[in-house]
Structures are given as C-alpha cells and as structure tokens.
Amino acid sequence: MKNIRIVIWILAAVAPFTVRAQQNIQFTQYIFNSLSVNPAYAGYKEDWFGQLGMRSQWVGLDGAPQTGLLSVDGLLDRATYKRHGLGVQVNADQLGPQSATSLYLNYAFRLRLNDEDTQRLSFGIGAGVTQYGLNGTLLDPVNTGDPIVPPNRINNFVPDIRFGIYYYNPVWYAGVSVMDLLSGDQSNNIFRWDNTTTDNIRRKRHIYFIGGALINLSEGTRLRPSLMLKEDFKGPTSLDLNAMFVFGDRFWIGGGWRTGVTVFKKDYERLTGNTLNKRNAIAAITQLYVTPSLRIGYSYDYILSQLSSVQNGSHEVTLGITFGHREQRLLSPRFF
C-alpha cells in the first residue's frame, strides 16, 4: 500500500506487536491549554480564552500525523461567583488514510476553597462525538477487490464522554482525567462493509495525570516545571517532563522530554517477553505574549527512536487570545 512505509517504521520504532488502536492526539504545548486533556480546566483563566494549535509530526515521512485543535473556554458567571466554566473544543487528526475529527462541550463546576479565592477545586465533564474516517482511495492493495480494503471513503460517528478533576493554587496545580470512555468500548465495531468489520483506528480509553508548580527565582524570573502522565493500559505509560523559564511574565522558554515508563507489566510483555523502546523525543518550547491578550507559541520535537533517520522532527505552533475588555481582565497572568 502507498502508506505502508509509515506503518513499517512505526512498528520498527516500537516493537513487533500488533497495533490495535489509534493513540490519542498529542501536543507538546498542552501546558498552555490543559483543556485538551482535562475538562475540569474549563474556565481556569477566568477570562474567555481561545486557542488554535497546529502540529505537523515526523516531517518528511509519508502519511505522518497532522493535528489541529481549536478551543474556546471561559466562565458563565465571571461577575459573581465564578463557579461555572464552559469550554468548546474541536480536534482534527489525520494519519495516512485514516482520520478522526472530534467536537466536545466541556463543563466545570469550580469550588472556592478559601476567602482570598486563590484556591479552587474543579470537577469537569465533557461530552462529544468523534467522526472516524478511512479513505480507501489512498490505499493500493496488491490484489484488487481485497475485501479488507474499503472501495472509497467510509465514516462513522462515535459518541464520547470524559471526566476530570483539577486543583490549583498560586504555587502548584494537579489534575486527573479519564478520556475516551465510549470511544474505547470495543463491543461495537466502527465500520461495516462487504461483511467485513474493522476497529483498528478507534482511540483507546486513557487516564491522564497532570501537575506542575511555579517557582520564583528572582525578581522577574520564574521557573515552571510540569509533567503529564498518560496511561492506556496497553503500551508503555507515557511521561512528559517539561520546564519553562518565565521572564517578565511575557517570554517563556524551556524544553521537555517524552519517554515511556514502566508502571506495571502489560499484556504485550507477558505474551511476547519483549519490552518496547521507550525513548521518544526531546523538545524545545517557547512562547511570547505579544500583547497582554495575544500569545504565540512554538515547539520543535527531536525524535530519539529509530524514526529519527527517516524524518525531520515535529513542529507545533499555537496561538492564544484573551477576549473581553482590558479593564475586565485579570491583573496577573495565569501561569497554569
């Protein structure tokens, strides 16, 4: 098939086991908008905030992932109790002939924990739908009329829900979420054609843990370390470690390291005795507040796996904008 090279290199980079589902979308700059991994984050900035993200992964490799994200979130009751956060999120993911486009509505109930209102505990829920697609015209089977290959593009819609908890104070934050609860249900097949079914492009259920802190180094200089742990109970547990220096509350620069970690023994290890190559990528990240309401971010991932010899890294660009009148905005920026 035309896109067989990417399949071969992915398998070579991880291990000789069968890939059974599409991984969740991946953003290096999740640290600037955690709504992408936790619905309880909706309304955290206490202003209406929009974000656009574009990621081109493994540049130079045919059929490599292309991902886009558009989100808007804020408070429904900003002038009073600031309890109700709302967020809308659209994701689009393309990997060779397969695609997944999602629309989610997220709601967060935010509990005030102290009189100064510097601590909040949020409970979030998200509901949406994902359109999974497979374009058979991009596949070129050895034998024409192969019943495994659809004759043209096929699509199906799968509803989905997600849950999350998010806590923050001026010094640190932490959150946990469960994503793709219905998309991960393997009891229903996504596609049917010519008495054939396939379910390989459905996302799996994931559990995310995010956490971070803000450390004052000197006047005008801060350090913001963070981490994200992602678990799908099939492959290695994914760990992102990041650290950003913040200068004058406007310019951020730092880096990150993405790798696999062993939390418990998985089925592929018990069945095959193999352990996957856990090396993944290192990243350079920067963002700049061009104005108090406009933020631009860029990151570059350098791949550490066997894919490094056949691609030119991954590029990611984000654009964030705060809506509302200047006098209504927060006097201090939101670092989380």
Score class of each variant (00 low, 15 high):
S122Q: 00
G87R: 00
R112T: 12
R162V: 03
P141V: 09
S99N: 09
I165F: 05
Y173W: 11
V72Y: 05
P151G: 09
S183I: 04
W172H: 14
L69K: 07
P170D: 11
V149L: 04
S177E: 02
R110K: 15
P141R: 05
Y132A: 10
S177K: 01
G136D: 08
L138R: 09
I165P: 01
V90G: 09
R78E: 08
P150L: 07
V90S: 06
L181Y: 06
N169S: 14
T144A: 11
A100G: 13
A100Q: 08
G133M: 07
L139D: 07
P147E: 08
G96I: 10
Y166C: 00
F123K: 08
S71L: 10
S99H: 04
S183R: 15
G145N: 14
N169F: 03
V59Y: 06
R112W: 01
V176M: 08
D117G: 04
G124S: 08
Q57C: 06
D140C: 07
G68Y: 13
S102R: 15
G133W: 07
V88R: 04
Y173V: 00
I161T: 08
A174R: 02
Q98R: 11
L181S: 06
Y104R: 05
L76V: 15
G85E: 00
V178N: 00
G87I: 01
N114F: 06
N135F: 08
Y107V: 05
P97C: 09
L70I: 14
T144M: 13
